[in-house]
Amino acid sequence: MIRMASAALFVLVVFVGVTVLTTRYQEKLEPTMYEYMVENFQRDTAAHNAVAAILLNYRMYDTMFEALILLTAIIGMKQFLPSAGEFTGGKSGRGADTTDWSGDSPKQG
């Protein structure tokens, strides 16, 4: 109980501290790319939405490799999650060769 209360107090103090610090003492950096993009994105890319202009024109490499990362994640998922019908090993032997499993089987409580 004391551990939980102290943890909650710690989280609360950090939350309040970070919030106060970031709202009181803001530091503005010099706007260089920001100003250029906001002023010129309509002329450069004919987009009406600055985010679309940045994602699909100014920072196209970023979007391309983001798509590549998604493909990599899906390939890993296909590798490690066999779906029904593609993987049929050991279905008939369930329970016959194992007598008592000492380990916990994960299940919903």
Partner: peptide, 16 residues
């Protein structure tokens, strides 16, 4: 694809 993989996942049992 991710959703179908999760939904039709065969399950982790002792036969895994």
């Amino acid at each position: 694809v991710a959703v179908f993989r999760f939904a039709f996942f065969k399950g982790i049992g002792p036969s895994w």
